[in-house]
């Protein structure tokens, strides 16, 4: 049972073993679409973290009252509610960052990762475990987004978080919209490479 895991393990699990972007290959749209800068990755990561944590906790609290036949509609309703909340809050208090993320904040509602976590974890586990699992998943998503943003921003614009690091633009190609596919593909291949090398080393 997953409940045996400590809180820390749940968080680490979300970031490494079950990283939503590189491991579960879910919610790829923003990973390709708006990962041009680290800042974008961070902002959307915060939004997803918020929605994931609040939805997980809500479902965990009310899990005994949710009729199994209307499980999925209830999850959708919960997620949609929290997405609306974060959408309104971001639009009101951080209009500039909100404008950069465009339609993607609203699209969190269709992210498979959140529904999946509710179905697989929050509807079965305690409130506390769901909270930590939500944090882990949210942070995992954020870390993935920021890693892609790191590569694209550094190589495309020579900056990080908006600060000039290199002083020149090495390869404009990387902030072109379609480069998102290449960066994600190459990074996945890189992680595969590490894994294969690690396994070989273990066997030897």
């Amino acid at each position: 049972m997953a409940t045996d895991k400590s809180n820390m393990q749940l968080v680490v699990n979300g970031i490494l073993n079950e990283n939503p972007i590189f491991r579960l290959v879910l919610s790829m749209c923003p990973a390709v679409g708006i990962s041009t800068t680290m800042m974008n990755g961070l902002m959307l990561g915060v939004a997803v973290l918020f929605v994931q944590v609040f939805s997980s906790v809500t479902i965990a609290i009310f899990k005994d009252y949710i009729h199994p036949r209307i499980r999925i509609p209830t999850y959708t309703l919960t997620i949609a509610t929290w997405v609306t909340v974060i959408d309104l809050v971001l639009a009101a208090f951080l209009p500039e960052a909100y404008a950069k993320m465009g339609i993607f904040v609203k699209l969190i509602v269709a992210f498979a990762i959140i529904t999946m976590r509710l179905e697989m974890f929050a509807s079965k586990e305690s409130v506390k475990a769901s909270l930590w699992d939500g944090i882990g998943m949210g942070l995992g998503f954020m870390a993935g987004m920021m890693a892609i943003g790191f590569v694209r921003e550094l190589l495309g614009m020579g900056t990080l978080m908006g600060y000039d690091i290199l002083g020149f633009k090495p390869l404009l190609f990387f902030i072109l919209p379609c480069a998102g596919f290449f960066v994600v593909g190459l990074m996945m291949a890189f992680f595969n490479y590490i894994e294969i090398a690690y396994k070989k080393a273990k066997q030897a």
Binding site: A179, F181, F182, V184, G185, L186, M188, A189, N192
Partner: peptide, 8 residues
């Protein structure tokens, strides 16, 4: 990974 490269 290769699917992503092709999509790119």
């Amino acid at each position: 990974p290769i699917a992503f490269i092709v999509a790119g």
